[in-house]
Write a protein that binds this DNA or RNA. Structure first.
Length: 286
RNA sequence: ACAACUUUU
């Protein structure tokens, strides 16, 4: 069963739901295996990630009709259902489901709330996200760094860099959660998109001195932000310096951003010759 | 270490 679950999870998480369902059928019909709660969990999550509300709901119903699993239904599966609903912006339904969890003695946890808050914040509903954020404590759920990162991301995207930076300062000084790599990456994204180069460097410095190692997301984020503006030349210089010193090996995402920028600001001709150079110099597969 | 949450093209 574990083997089947692993297989289903693998297919589900790259969107191959038709095959995942085929394996699900096969395990029962040809090998007499009974799905476990993790089997249903993997399937529901797969449907959720591919935006298939019906598929997720049907799987949920199958699970509820499965003698061996009804009583095993747990917070993980509920959270996946909350996730599907959020992806369809059915936030009232998601909230109702959390209420139902509480009543059915399957208590929501921090991840459950994070799923809802992430959905709200990611769709511009920052006010509502904050309300839930304040409410989760009453359910005995303590916000963690992910919760804060979700709110921060929402603020940066829908309320603007300034609002977001204020939240970041609060987060940094109140000592409840410590800003992490994702926190800094989000902030750097907004700040470099606003073109505030000095601030980018300051924040980057703060990040490094807090002992956080920048990763590909960090560099790609900044490179992309500057490629979108007229600053592609600048983006290329950053890339060159970092890779010459061996700090970073640019990946395919970075090259995509640079190419987009060169194409947009200097025309396809230039982009073509850059593409050739990049293949020779770095052995990257476009 | 069989399933759920946040950052880049």
């Amino acid at each position: 069963v574990v083997l089947y679950n692993t297989l289903i999870h693998g297919l589900s998480s790259c969107g191959r739901m038709v095959e995942a369902v085929a394996v699900f059928e096969d395990m029962q019909q040809n090998n007499g295996c009974s799905p476990s709660i993790a089997t249903y969990g993997a399937l529901i999550d797969g449907f959720s990630k591919s935006g298939d509300l019906r598929g997720a709901t049907e799987t949920w119903n199958k699970m509820m009709a499965d003698e061996g699993c009804v009583d095993m239904v747990n917070v993980v599966v509920y959270t996946s259902m909350v996730d599907v609903l959020c992806r369809h912006w059915m936030f009232d339904e998601a909230y109702a489901l959390i209420e139902r969890m509480r009543r059915s003695s399957c208590h929501p946890n921090t991840v459950t709330f994070n799923t809802l808050i992430g959905g709200l914040a990611g769709s511009g509903r920052t006010e509502r996200a904050r309300t839930i954020f304040e409410e989760m404590g009453r359910y005995g759920c303590i916000p963690n760094v992910t919760t804060y990162n979700e709110l921060l991301g929402g603020l940066l995207k829908s309320e603007g860099t300034k609002e977001g930076l204020e939240f970041f300062k609060e987060m940094d000084s109140n000592g409840i959660v410590k800003p992490d790599l994702v926190t800094y990456n989000s902030v750097l994204r907004s700040v470099s998109r606003s073109g505030m180069l000095v601030l980018v460097l300051q924040i980057f410095g703060k990040m490094v001195s807090s002992g956080i190692e920048p990763d590909n997301f960090t560099f790609n984020t900044v490179i992309d932000a500057y490629s979108r503006q007229r600053r592609v030349g600048f983006a290329i210089r950053i890339q060159d310096r970092l890779s010459c010193r061996g700090y970073w090996c640019p990946d395919i995402v970075a090259y995509n951003s640079l190419l987009w920028g060169i194409c947009r600001w200097f025309g396809p001709e230039k982009a073509g010759s850059y593409l050739e150079k990049m293949m020779v110099n770095h052995g990257t597969n476009p």
